[in-house]
Computed example of a mutant assay.
Amino acid sequence: MGVVHAPYLRVLDAFTADGYPLILAGHTHGGQLCIPFYGALVTNCDLDTDRVKGLSTHTAEGRTSYLHVSAGCGTNRYTPVRFACPPEATLLTLVSRE
């Protein structure tokens, strides 16, 4: 399992290529400023807005990893508010594949 603060694509590519089955990340604040029925406007990194929070996959060099990005509870110093993006604390239960 890989844990990274910010899900920059170069980091996700490295973890996935190295065979990590799950990558946990934050940093995006869930987009922080969202439009209802549209989604996030920004990600605070180079990750696409469709994967700004929640569970998705990431593929690199023929391998695929699960990626979970938590929206977290905070804001950033440039935009000290959240809109249409409720704070969250994520509880994940990991179970063996066997």
Rank of each mutant, 00 (worst) to 15 (best):
C45A: 05
M1V: 11
R63W: 02
I35L: 15
T43G: 07
H68M: 07
A25P: 04
Y20G: 05
R77P: 07
D48E: 13
L94N: 11
T79A: 14
T75W: 02
D48L: 10
D46I: 07
H27V: 00
M1L: 15
G26W: 06
G74P: 09
G31F: 03
Y66C: 05
T64F: 05
P21R: 14
Q32K: 06
I35S: 11
P80H: 09
F37D: 14
Y20E: 10
Y38D: 00
T64D: 12
I23E: 01
S65W: 00
F15P: 00
T43I: 05
P7Q: 03
H27W: 00
H29G: 07
K53F: 08
G62W: 04
L22A: 01
I35R: 09
F15N: 03
H29F: 04
C85T: 02
Y66I: 03
L22V: 13
L9D: 11
T49D: 05
P7S: 03
S65L: 06
H29I: 06
Y8S: 04
C73L: 15
V52S: 02
A84M: 08
P21Y: 01
G31L: 11
T59L: 01
L24V: 10
A6S: 13
A14L: 10
L94P: 05
Y8K: 14
C34E: 04
F83G: 03
D48G: 09
A17R: 13
V95P: 00
T79P: 01
T64H: 05
C34D: 05
Y8C: 01
Y66F: 02
N44W: 06
P80R: 14
A40F: 07
F83P: 01
G31R: 06
Y78E: 13
L91E: 12
L41N: 09
G26P: 00
R51V: 06
C45D: 11
V81D: 13
Y8G: 01
R97G: 15
L41W: 03
S56L: 13
I23W: 02
G62R: 12
Y8P: 00
L55H: 10
R82V: 08
T64Q: 15
V81Y: 07
S70W: 00
R77S: 14
F37A: 13
P7C: 03
L91A: 07
T93D: 14
T93N: 10
G30I: 03
V81T: 05
N44F: 08
L92T: 09
L55A: 08
T16I: 00
A25I: 01
L92D: 09
I35V: 15
A60D: 07
P80D: 13
T90S: 14
D48M: 12
V3M: 10
T75R: 09
P21T: 06
H68N: 14
V52Q: 09
Y66G: 02
R77I: 12
L47V: 06
F37R: 11
Q32G: 00
S65H: 07
V3I: 13
I23T: 03
P87I: 02
F15E: 07
L94M: 13
E61T: 13
F83L: 15
E88I: 04
E61G: 08
G26E: 04
A71I: 05
L67F: 03
E98F: 04
F83V: 12
T75S: 11
